[in-house]
């Protein structure tokens, strides 16, 4: 070993992280599946807005639906909130799971992850880049929904400011603030699911398994949360915070449940990413 001096000094040089992140984002935003997904999500608030506008015209007396839906008619700024909260039940988690599935499992299946590993991109950095990509595109998805939702809401449903579920009327800018808060809360919840999905994604090379396991987690959590005997489990379930996101339209803002939802998501993010990191450090590429 002593004789093994290397002629040219090897230094651990690394490709700059921002360059890797840009490259990752560019690739994700060129993937047809991502683009179709984003497009469909952007349409959700528009379709919901048209539906509610038509239903309201038909029988303008009776408020219809339940939950937030009753408040959306004639209350355009609430449309993006409504669309985001509704999509958080299935569409957005599905999107997050899909992004995470493509990030590691999909790239492994295509053999593209090898190119990065032999470049080399360090494994921890690789996960950081992937996490950044998934997080950014999820945020983009919710932002997009907020934008189309706000525009569709104002055009189709009108209304001044935002009528909260507590019966107060917020000024326009405060309403926009609530929409942005919804974006943040919903995005963080999607991040939490995506973190878990990314851990699964590090474990398999079949993207479909990632989506199935993630949605399985959502469905099982949902089922567990409605079994009264398992109520004690509720604070631990990932879906519990999703239901409290609609608290953003209450006035005054119940900060307790909102912070709790964020903390719960943070716990899932820590668990998901530490499992993903542990797996990616040891997995055979």
């Amino acid at each position: 070993m002593t004789a093994m001096t290397v002629p040219a000094p090897l230094t651990a040089r690394r490709a700059p992280l921002p360059r890797l992140m840009r490259s990752e984002l560019r690739m994700m935003l060129r993937r047809p599946r991502t683009l179709i997904g984003l497009g469909l999500l952007a349409l959700v608030p528009v379709v919901a807005g048209i539906g509610i506008a038509i239903a309201t015209d038909a029988n303008s007396d009776e408020p219809m639906g339940q939950g937030l839906e009753t408040l959306v008619a004639g209350n355009g700024l609430l449309l993006p909130v409504f669309a985001l909260v509704v999509s958080l039940n299935m569409l957005l988690p599905l999107t997050g799971a899909m992004l995470a599935a493509d990030a590691l499992a999909g790239e492994t299946a295509h053999g593209t992850l090898r190119n990065l590993l032999t470049a080399p991109v360090g494994r921890a950095r690789l996960l950081a880049v992937k996490a950044f990509g998934v997080a950014t595109v999820s945020l983009l998805a919710t932002l997009l929904m907020a934008v189309t939702g706000t525009i569709a809401g104002i055009l189709l449903l009108g209304g001044e400011g935002m009528l909260t579920s507590s019966g107060t009327q917020l000024p326009f800018l405060d309403g926009v603030g609530r929409v942005l808060l919804t974006v943040v809360l919903v995005t963080v919840q999607v991040w939490a699911l995506a973190a878990v999905a990314l851990a699964v994604s590090a474990w398999t090379e079949h993207p479909l398994i990632v989506v199935v396991v993630s949605l399985g987690l959502v469905i099982v959590s949902g089922v567990l949360s409605v079994i009264p005997a398992l109520d004690w489990l509720d604070p631990v379930l990932i879906t519990t915070s999703w239901q409290s996101v609609s608290d953003v339209v209450r006035d005054p803002l119940p900060t307790g449940s909102i912070t709790e939802g964020l903390l719960r998501a943070a716990c899932y993010i820590v668990i998901g990413y530490s499992l993903a990191l542990s797996r990616i450090l040891t997995r055979d590429g």
Partner: peptide
């Protein structure tokens, strides 16, 4: 991190998007 930058590799067939 030290060795691979100077190593070019084509393993298990080409893998691209």
């Amino acid at each position: 991190a030290l060795a691979l930058p100077e190593v070019g590799a084509l393993v298990e067939g080409p893998g691209f998007h």
